[in-house]
Simulated assay, not measured.
Amino acid sequence: METLHLLAGFVLATAAFALGTLPATGPPARRTALGGVAAVRNAGPALAATGIAFAGQPAVLGALAGALLSGLTAALPIAALLSRRRSGTGNPQGGI
């Protein structure tokens, strides 16, 4: 059961990344950033609401945290892959 929960978090985060990236406008760096933010943007309120609603059940909060971490493991490789596809390897501001 826990495996399905983590897999669901992974799949939903991947879908959220795609839904955040595809309609975004601007350069690829901006689209990638918006996709990454879309996958985890409501983590804080979800954890707070779960902590309040299920105060006596720490397993529920742990399950939600696990799903959010699973989603983060989906978003990071996607962002890394998309960042490699950008043109140019240097910093546009001329820094290090």
Score class of each variant (00 low, 15 high):
Thr3Leu: 15
Asn91Arg: 01
Gly66Val: 06
Val11Tyr: 01
Leu81Ile: 13
Ser83Ile: 02
Gly95Met: 06
Arg84Gln: 13
Pro23Leu: 11
Gly66Leu: 08
Met1Asp: 15
Ala55Glu: 09
Ala65Asn: 12
Leu72Ile: 13
Ala8Asn: 10
Gly88Tyr: 04
Phe17Met: 02
Pro77Phe: 05
Gln57Asn: 12
Gly20Gln: 02
Gly35Trp: 00
Ala46Trp: 02
Val60Asn: 05
Thr50His: 04
Phe10Cys: 13
Ala39Ile: 00
Leu76Val: 13
Thr25Glu: 07
Pro28Leu: 09
Ala39Asp: 05
Pro27Ile: 10
Pro23Cys: 08
Ala15Asn: 03
Ala53Tyr: 01
Ala65Ile: 11
Ala80Met: 12
Ala29Thr: 04
Pro28Ile: 06
Thr21Tyr: 14
Ala74Thr: 04
Leu68Cys: 06
Gly56Asn: 12
Arg86Pro: 01
Pro92Lys: 03
Ala79Trp: 03
Gly94Thr: 11
Gly20His: 01
Val60Pro: 04
Ala18Trp: 05
Gly44Arg: 08
Ala49Val: 14
Pro23Ile: 10
Asn91Pro: 00
Leu6Thr: 09
Thr50Phe: 03
Ala74Ile: 06
Ala13Met: 02
Ala75Glu: 11
Thr25Ile: 05
Gln57Leu: 11
Leu68Phe: 13
Leu68Pro: 03
Val40Asn: 11
Asn91Gln: 10
Gly20Ala: 06
Leu76His: 02
Ser83Leu: 04
Ala63Ser: 12
Pro58Tyr: 05
Pro92Ile: 08
Leu22Trp: 13
Leu22Ile: 15
Gly26Ala: 03
Gln57Ala: 14
Leu6Pro: 05
Ala67Ile: 00
Leu19Tyr: 03
Leu81Gly: 07
Pro28His: 10
Thr3Tyr: 15
Gly44Trp: 09
Ala46Tyr: 03
Arg84His: 12
Ala38Thr: 05
Ala79Ser: 14
Gly66Ile: 06
Met1Glu: 15
Val60Tyr: 10
Pro28Val: 07
Gly51His: 07
Pro23Trp: 06
Gly36Met: 11
Ala13Asn: 02
Ala13Phe: 02
Leu82Pro: 08
Leu19Gly: 00
Ala24Lys: 05
Ile96Asn: 06
Arg84Leu: 15
Gln93Thr: 11
Pro45Gln: 03
Gly88Glu: 06
Thr14Ile: 00
Leu72Glu: 12
Ala67Leu: 00
Val37Thr: 11
Gly95Gln: 09
Ile52Cys: 05
Thr50Leu: 06
Ala16Cys: 07
Val40Asp: 02
Leu34Trp: 08
Val37Arg: 09
Pro23His: 08
Arg86Tyr: 06
Asn91Asp: 15
Leu12Trp: 07
Ala43Lys: 00
Thr14Val: 09
Ala24Trp: 01
Leu69Phe: 15
Ala80His: 13
Gly62Ala: 13
Gly94His: 07
Val37Gln: 01
Gly26Ser: 07
Gly66Phe: 04
Val11Arg: 00
Gly95Leu: 14
Met1Gln: 14
Ala15Met: 11
Gly35Pro: 09
Leu47Cys: 03
Ala43Ser: 12
Ala24Tyr: 02
Ala74Arg: 03
Arg86Gln: 15
Gly94Pro: 03
Pro77Ala: 11
Arg31Pro: 10
Leu82Trp: 14
Gly36Arg: 02
Ala39Tyr: 00
Ala80Lys: 14
Gly56His: 10
Thr50Val: 14
Arg30Met: 09
Arg41Ser: 14
Ser70Trp: 01
